[in-house]
Design a protein around this nucleic acid. Structure first.
Lengths: 213, 213
DNA sequence: ATTAACTTGCACAGCAGTGTGCAAGTTATC
DNA sequence: GATAACTTGCACACTGCTGTGCAAGTTAAT
């Protein structure tokens, strides 16, 4: 047993579950409406508004945690891309981010709030650096367009991925394919070149079930 | 002179100017922040909040007028495109919309509010129809990508134009060029094909000053 | 079984916004 | 110069949100 002085009984299991539940609820609620009220989030989590304030100091703290969660996932994705061919790297990155569509939606929605603009920017810095790196490589190897400066092209790629993932119906199986093709197109490939590339690397747009089978 | 019974002196000139000033102010304020307060808009117009309510029933009426104004411009632009080559038509449309960048920003910002979603949708219907029409023609002539269904491609084109116009710095002279190239890329052209097309039709990305000289 | 952790519901203060009424002032138009 | 149109400033009621305090209840851990 722990000493009764500095003991401070450890947090209850249900409390931890509730905290996670709030984050999940916020995930859903904020993706739908980035300025959903604390009450709406708490309700979605099956808790009272008052209880939520027992887990998070204020609305901002909750949002910040969501941003941190999402950014961690994205940056892990970015770190996992290591293809030598920049075109393949871009395609794989787009496909991987599509798998995180739900998180992309939340982050994109939150980033629209002036309040969290620079916060999301710094959290996503590693991902942005990875994109710039891929684009530079691709331009040096003359496999990506060179009529647009690398930083601009990286931005274009990022915006295209965000747009196609968050604004086109992401439920259909064709959506991942579309996201990948859109990114390749904006990077300078013709649609036939993109098509050929995806035939050469069928695993990029393979569904997770097929990959695990 | 008019009869003293149904006379009702005509509205004062300064009142008309103020009304126009409010719309201009709303244009600026809402492009910056789609949920700017009535007070902020009135201040920007150099009027009191109270005076604004003399010109518009409520905030919604003001927003609706802005949407109608912008939609009218866009639909006029869409109607003016009559190139036989779908690629040229798309390029010209993108360039023309870039000239309306300020209006695109306002409309896009307003459209983000759930409240005005279907309103903006119906107002922009003619523009959307024009894009679908161009895309269909291009696919039939085999000059645009055919790996994506026409409605989806039209949507993709629209989103790309909106994204590049509203989210990339629109002040630099290269921005119009970028908008046009992005649209052509998403439509399936390689960056070299797009480049060649723009060299064949230099007037598309010509600056208004150069065109009038 | 006891205890501390947790949740709830309510009340409260505060903030920011909307839309209205009204009296008093200014100003374009007749 | 008379008059109606317009603007202003203030007060007001209302809504919807945030964050806090507190008493009372419930529940997991010890």
């Amino acid at each position: 047993m722990t000493s009764p002085i500095d003991a401070a009984r450890r947090p209850r299991r249900d409390a931890l579950e509730n905290r996670a539940g709030i984050l999940a609820a916020a995930h859903v609620a904020l993706a739908h409406d980035p300025r959903a009220s604390v009450d709406a989030i708490a309700r979605q989590a099956g808790l009272s508004r008052r209880a939520l304030y027992g887990h998070f100091d204020d609305r901002d703290a909750l949002v910040r945690e969501l941003v941190a969660q999402g950014a961690a996932r994205f940056n892990a994705v970015a770190a996992s891309i290591d293809d030598a061919d920049a075109r393949v790297a871009l395609a794989r990155l787009a496909a991987a981010l599509w798998n995180e569509a739900a998180h992309v939606q939340v982050l994109a929605a939150i980033a629209l709030d002036e309040a969290h603009l620079e916060e999301t920017a710094t959290a996503l810095a590693p991902l942005r650096r990875a994109v710039v790196h891929i684009v530079r490589d691709g331009q040096d190897a003359d496999v990506l367009r060179t009529d647009v400066a690398a930083p601009t092209l990286a931005r274009l790629v990022e915006e295209t991925a965000r747009t196609v993932i968050t604004r086109i119906d992401a439920s259909s199986p064709a959506a991942r394919d579309l996201a990948v093709r859109a990114v390749l197109s904006i990077a300078g490939l013709s649609w036939r070149q993109a098509d050929a590339l995806l035939h050469e690397h069928p695993e990029i747009v393979a569904t997770p079930e097929a990959a695990s089978a």
